[in-house]
Design a protein around this nucleic acid. Structure first.
Ligand SMILES: NC(=O)c1ccc[n+]([C@@H]2O[C@H](COP(=O)([O-])OP(=O)(O)OC[C@H]3O[C@@H](n4cnc5c(N)ncnc54)[C@H](O)[C@@H]3O)[C@@H](O)[C@H]2O)c1
Ligand SMILES: NC(=O)c1ccc[n+]([C@@H]2O[C@H](COP(=O)([O-])OP(=O)(O)OC[C@H]3O[C@@H](n4cnc5c(N)ncnc54)[C@H](O)[C@@H]3O)[C@@H](O)[C@H]2O)c1
Lengths: 251, 251
DNA sequence: AGGCGTTTGTGAACGTACGCACAAACTCAC
DNA sequence: GTGAGTTTGTGCGTACGTTCACAAACGCCT
């Protein structure tokens, strides 16, 4: 499910397609990992699929199948060794060494991200900040200096950065993405509300707050439609009334 | 697909299940809407499925099927009327009147969200801010006062708020969610890295930045494994090496 | 050592989603 | 009015994801 993905994405690199880990499973592993860390802190040494599933907010059968994909070692009649499972998942996700991340666009949102302390515990280190505004370059945030965007290639190479976060306005995002790719970045997390086009081999994930709210709005709309007309709704199926021509239409 | 969903979510409210819009389609409509607005600003009156699909970053067949679900009016040989399609999608998403949103937790991230101007153009209005910290209550952000969290029921009722955003630390999130539900909120967007448990009929979507980065990390890991061993990879399939017992294990 | 309760791992059935490919529907030019 | 070119809407095959349900595996108690 997920997000933007271009052409034949990484995961099926050549013709002889190999399935390896299902994408849906990959998307859930981080959630399992978070739940496991929480359990470990709470003093658990082992956990059953039922328990972990509850902590991660999923079905236990799904959890077991997900874990079985990574050849996991649970013990029947007992459950999973929490510490071992953490190590396994971190290994699969490539978190055994902390990954360095670049953040481009230190505005409203970028400031919040740069100042966020929660990355360290999840396997990442923000290694560099960039902006195009000369007034912002040189500023220090959380002990990190803001670099001019033109120093991107240099710093990306020096810090061995492979992941970048874009927090610039949408108009600048494509240009920034191009610069990032040129500098050698191969994974991008995009907060700007626009589609990025990147070469094959580069992964893009997008987070758009308004999209999330609009999805919620849809369900909200649905709920209220149901409670307003409690009985005999036509034939038991909610029909979408087509908007009349010109209705709410910005001519 | 997407995110946390509890029990039988809204969308299949009673026994006589009705399919209506596929969830995957709902998740893409906001992206189409954004692309359409962009096209409208650029001066387009009509757009082909091919063109709109490119602007939204999806396959054109998928786009057509999605639009066909809402009984959409395209014209063969021509394409879709941009303004009409915007009105249709906004209608389906329940955006015909602007929805009011509450934001709880005006810290690092909350400040950025409260100061963000991009909501208005996407159908939402942040109608109220809340925090538990007495030092923050009373502060004004973007002309909006920060209310004490205890005034939640009162303000939610007065402003007819049905959607809320949680931007508090994870430890407080469940408690805040309970208060929101008690106050009548039925949709929650959660930025705290934790699972929320809510009654049936309440929708929760979660945004976790670290999860997104970890998914990127997985693909990054995969890519480097492939380029490091360029030839004969065992049997053409990447095997996940199980972590040895105790390896990288915090005993 | 053996039996019992527990929990994993997975085969199989089901449901959803994707994308191709094509007929039907439409415009426009002449 | 007719034919050529374009584009929608959708039927269909395939792939993917989810869930059930159960046998095999394990610990523990006696
Ligand atoms: N603020 C939020 O809460 C929020 C929420 C959702 C989405 N977004 C999106 O995130 C992005 C950033 O939002 P914001 O509120 O921080 O905007 P902002 O205007 O406050 O910050 C943008 C920053 O990017 C910098 N920038 C512009 N062009 C650049 C370039 N070419 N190279 C490098 N840096 C450049 C600017 O100098 C500025 O510092 C926007 O696309 C916005 O739509 C923001
Ligand atoms: N800052 C980021 O960039 C970022 C990124 C990803 C996720 N997050 C998550 O978002 C959440 C907020 O992050 P932050 O950096 O803004 O934290 P923060 O500590 O800066 O802000 C949290 C705010 O919540 C308020 N709060 C605490 N308990 C409350 C309660 N019971 N009711 C109402 N308000 C309460 C606090 O007073 C504070 O103002 C955290 O869960 C964090 O993990 C933040």
């Amino acid at each position: 499910m997920s997000q933007q993905r271009n052409g034949q994405a990484a995961g099926a690199p050549d013709g002889a397609g190999f399935p390896d880990l299902p994408e849906a499973t990959v998307a859930r592993l981080p959630e399992y990992l978070r739940a496991l860390h929480h359990l470990a802190e709470t003093g658990f040494d082992t956990v059953s699929s039922e328990g972990l599933a509850a902590a991660a907010g999923v079905n236990s059968a799904k959890l077991r199948k997900d874990l079985s994909h990574l050849g996991s070692y649970g013990t029947r009649g007992v459950g999973y060794d929490v510490a071992l499972l953490i190590a396994q998942i971190e290994h699969v996700l490539g978190l055994t060494q902390r990954r360095t991340v670049a953040l481009v666009g230190v505005g409203n949102l970028g400031h919040a991200l740069a100042g966020y302390g929660g990355f360290g515990t999840r396997g990442f280190r923000i290694a560099a900040l960039f902006d195009a505004d000369p007034g912002r370059v040189g500023e220090q945030i959380n002990g990190l200096p803001v670099h001019d965007i033109r120093r991107l290639p240099e710093v990306v190479a020096a810090e061995a950065i492979s992941i970048a976060v874009i927090a610039t306005p949408a108009e600048a995002a494509q240009q920034v993405a191009d610069q990032l790719v040129a500098a050698g970045v191969t994974s991008i997390l995009n907060f700007a509300p626009c589609v990025l086009s990147v070469p094959d081999g580069v992964d893009v994930r997008k987070v758009d707050l308004a999209v999330e709210l609009q999805i919620l709005s849809f369900h909200e709309h649905r709920k209220s439609a149901l409670t307003t007309l409690p009985s005999h709704p036509a034939n038991g199926r909610v029909k979408i009334r087509p908007a009349l021509n010109g209705e709410a239409l910005a001519t």
